[in-house]
């Protein structure tokens, strides 16, 4: 099974669009197939961990998800990853901590901000290539909830940028290795999630274009919380509903329902127009995920899993 499909999935998109839900869907589906899955959250711990029922702990710790057997969760954070990495690679041992506290190191790490992102990707790579006894990889699938798109793009462009800024040395070698991993389409995919509204769709298009410019195209484009497309005759029906003769006791209810239908139709129009424009601009098909109101966040992720897996396989 491993090696047949891509093993490293990054997910990004604007705030609140459903990134963590898509990550959880991917992770749960793989775990259900019997794969060992690591779900990683970047930056501040948050949605994904709550979704999978993992309490907050220190950066870098890997915790089994109680709500999702077969899935382990971790959050990786830049400053900690950088320090840890340098101490390990430079074999600094006990001296490491003192060095990291030194103002020179602090200034350096701040002035060269790409370093932190770089080391986080390095940690993801370490997890991906870790071998267990019998040479079986430790994880069959890694999903990374890369957070909001602005942040994620900054993150994903760092290895290539750092390989240029640091023409030699340890950082250069590390950057080149990470850039190669992200750019390897047989292994890694970056998926973008959007909502079916004007601004979020326009922003998603920009993100996909930016990813392509970085050589990181090829992932799926999800439009989450889609309404079903309206059938012909809906506008005539909406008018009829507004004018429907009902008992006086039902007039308020009629107006209420009519308003809800008109609203839904207006949002559906925005959705259809926006998705069509997006698909035309990017010359690719978007994957629509339906709006779901039943159950909690985890139940939604489970319900969306088949659609998500089909689009990312």
């Amino acid at each position: 099974m491993a090696g047949r499909h891509r093993t490293l999935h990054y997910v990004t998109g604007k705030g609140g669009v459903g990134k963590s839900t898509v990550c959880a869907a991917l992770a749960l589906a793989a775990a259900a197939r019997g794969e060992r899955v690591l779900a990683i959250e970047l930056g501040q711990p948050g949605g994904l961990r709550r979704l999978l029922g993992v309490a907050a702990d220190a950066a870098g710790t890997i915790t089994p998800a109680r709500a999702a057997p077969g899935v382990a969760v971790a959050w990786f954070e830049g400053a900690a990853a950088l320090g840890e990495y340098l101490v390990r690679r430079l074999r600094l041992g006990r001296l490491g901590r003192a060095l990291i506290a030194h103002p020179l190191y602090q200034a350096f790490a701040t002035a060269a901000p790409g370093l932190r992102e770089l080391m986080v990707i390095g940690k993801v790579r370490d997890e991906l290539v870790l071998q267990q006894v019998g040479a079986r990889p430790r994880w069959d699938l890694i999903v990374v909830d890369a957070g909001a798109s602005g942040h994620a793009l900054g993150h994903l462009r760092m290895p290539a940028a750092a390989a240029r800024s640091f023409p030699s040395g340890l950082v250069h070698r590390e950057a080149a290795r990470n850039a190669a991993l992200l750019g390897d389409r047989a292994t890694c995919a970056v998926h973008v999630v959007a909502l079916p509204e004007e601004l979020p769709l326009a922003e998603a298009a920009q993100v996909v274009v930016a990813l392509r410019a970085l050589g990181l195209g090829g992932g799926a484009l999800f439009v989450n919380q889609c309404r079903p497309a309206a059938p012909l005759g809906i506008d005539a029906l909406a008018v009829r509903l507004g004018d429907l003769a009902v008992a006086p006791a039902l007039e308020a209810a009629r107006d209420e329902v009519a308003t809800a239908v008109r609203r839904a139709r207006r949002w559906e129009r925005i959705q259809e127009r926006g998705v069509a424009a997006l698909e035309a601009e990017l010359a690719m098909a978007a994957v629509r995920l339906p709006r779901l109101w039943q159950g909690d966040g985890l139940a939604r992720a489970v319900a969306l899993a088949p659609l998500v897996v089909e689009a990312t396989g």
Partner: peptide
Amino acid sequence: AFAKVVLRWLEQAAGHVA
């Protein structure tokens, strides 16, 4: 002496030019 260690160490990581 310690700051020199830090400098040398950073240089090893970042390379001369950077």
